[in-house]
């Protein structure tokens, strides 16, 4: 048993905790979310580089939301999302414990939002090199080329909403796409309707996207859909100095008015 499994076993045996949300080995070497309730199942838990999925989405899920004895094993994406969810009052202080990892692999117990926020401050918040390169490639395109790039991507989207479902920040009980009086966004998955959907989603995530890339990882058609919300995240940083997932106080660009906010886009 490794230290995570031992820790999980102790926590469950102590009776103070009844549920551990973490990762287990899935099909073909993939990691996947797992829910451990019994100490004898603690050995299923893994934590390695395959565990890059953001699993904060489960914290507010109906079936486990009210369980006050839960623990979540968190990678850096999940941690940042917890901070942002805390800022938006979607999770509550003291409702769960976080098991994070130091660089040397040691387990760090985080019990309060303050502790989580402090730990998150030590993490890297930028894009990965590959992501930054993709962003640059698109930004360097001419307007026509960029339009063609996204038109091609949107033509593939089947509107399965896996991107939305796996994004911890997409927690609205009724999404704009589900409102049909009036119908804001086309239901069929044609290129125009897909563009409407993704632009709407990106705007709703302005200053809230923690750039975890989970939406893109979830997409069965492999659209690099995270790049849209990344763009809005980078703009939020540049123009409003707002970086999601860094502060447990609500300060995202679209929710807060500051007298010094830029207004030069209003013409």
């Amino acid at each position: 048993m490794n230290n995570l499994q031992q820790k999980a076993q102790q926590l469950l045996e102590s009776g103070n905790y009844g549920l551990i949300v973490g990762y287990e080995k899935g099909t073909s070497g993939k990691a996947r979310p797992v829910f451990i309730r019994k100490a004898e199942h603690a050995s299923k838990l893994i934590f390695d580089e395959s565990c890059d999925q953001n699993i904060a989405v489960y914290l507010y899920r109906q079936e486990i939301k009210h369980n006050k004895k839960k623990v979540i094993v968190a990678n850096h994406h999940t941690l940042k999302s917890i901070v942002e969810l805390a800022a938006e009052n979607q999770v509550f202080d003291g409702d769960f414990m976080v098991l994070a990892f130091a660089e040397n692999g040691d387990i760090i117990e985080l019990n309060t939002f303050e502790e989580i926020e402090k730990h998150v401050a030590t993490l890297y918040h930028g894009l990965t090199e590959a992501e930054a390169a993709m962003m640059k490639k698109i930004e360097d395109m001419s307007l026509e080329d960029r339009w063609a790039f996204w038109e091609n991507e949107f033509s593939k989207c089947i509107k399965c909403y896996a991107c939305r479902a796996s994004c911890p920040m997409c927690y609205c009980p009724t999404c704009t796409v589900e409102i049909n009086q009036p119908q804001w966004i086309s239901v069929p998955s044609h290129t125009l309707g897909n563009l409407e959907w993704h632009v709407m989603r990106a705007m709703h995530l302005a200053g809230r996207c923690v750039t975890c890339g989970q939406c893109g990882k979830a997409c069965p058609l492999e659209l690099p859909i995270q790049l849209l919300t990344y763009k809005v995240a980078l703009d939020s940083k540049q123009f409003f100095d707002s970086v999601a997932g860094t502060s447990i106080c609500a300060d995202n660009a679209l929710a807060i008015f500051k007298p010094e906010d830029h207004e030069n886009f209003i013409r």
Partner: peptide, 17 residues
Amino acid sequence: WTEQAMRCIGCGACAYV
């Protein structure tokens, strides 16, 4: 069924493909 579906985040990927 609750246990079977714990992981499922409710999307259309499985049905659409």
